[in-house]
């Protein structure tokens, strides 16, 4: 596992130096513009890195070669997810730090908002990879991207109509939930961890049965 994680990080760093340089630029722009939502692009950017590595693996045929090494298929999948989790945690940490610095500079610190932003950053960092990784493993990264767009397109098409029709007071219930800080925090973290577990299980099953 250590070798696989090393490979993931080396490939990510060597291929994404420019992307990593953008992080402090985003932070500075967010602080200057007083736009904390802009800072949330950082975890999204970090989440894209392991997906890019999957494309590089396909191009170099690493995904073929790695199966000739003494590594279980489950570990190969797990190394991808572990990288995603580490980056999501890093994204959440960076967002938390920037928000804290901003609040201290502004002279008002609200720990609830900071925690909310950390949770949102962590969720954003996991959301895209958790949907994309199984699709990439099943269809390859080129087709996987198209299926990802279809998948998210359907969700984005269905959810707004649910909110708009609102015959079950969905919006009111959601507003109450987000207003209740601790419940919202627990449910968000639990939901994203469930998504992570489901995604990992599906990916492991796909990879186990996949022939290269």
């Amino acid at each position: 596992m250590k070798g696989l994680l090393l490979k993931e990080s080396l490939v990510m760093i060597k291929n994404n130096k420019a992307s990593l340089l953008i992080i402090p630029i985003f932070a500075v722009i967010g602080i200057i513009n007083k736009q904390m939502m802009f800072i949330l692009l950082i975890p999204v950017l970090l989440a894209m890195l392991p997906l890019g590595t999957m494309t590089y693996d396909e191009i170099s045929r690493w995904n073929f070669y790695v199966q000739c090494m003494p590594v279980e298929k489950k570990r190969i999948v797990s190394s991808k997810y572990l990288t995603v989790v580490i980056l999501a945690l890093a994204g959440a940490f960076i967002v938390g730090c920037i928000k804290l610095i901003y609040d201290i500079a502004a002279g008002e610190t609200d720990h609830r908002v900071i925690i909310m932003m950390i949770i949102t950053a962590f969720t954003l960092g996991l959301l895209v990879p958790c949907i994309s990784i199984p699709l990439n493993l099943k269809f390859g990264t080129a087709k996987g991207r198209i299926f990802y767009l279809i998948f998210t397109g359907i969700i984005c098409g269905v959810l707004p109509s649910m909110f708009l029709s609102d015959d079950k007071n969905f919006t009111v219930k959601l507003a109450k939930l987000t207003g209740h800080f601790s419940v919202f925090s627990i449910i968000s973290v639990a939901a994203v961890l469930v998504l992570l577990a489901v995604s990992w299980t599906i990916s492991s099953m796909i990879y186990e049965h996949k022939e290269i």
Binding site: L10, K14, S60, W62, F64, Y65
Partner: peptide, 13 residues
């Protein structure tokens, strides 16, 4: 020890 016709190592390394 395995050697494939396309080696399969990451190009950036």
């Amino acid at each position: 020890g395995v050697v494939l016709d396309e080696v399969g190592l990451p190009e950036a390394l």
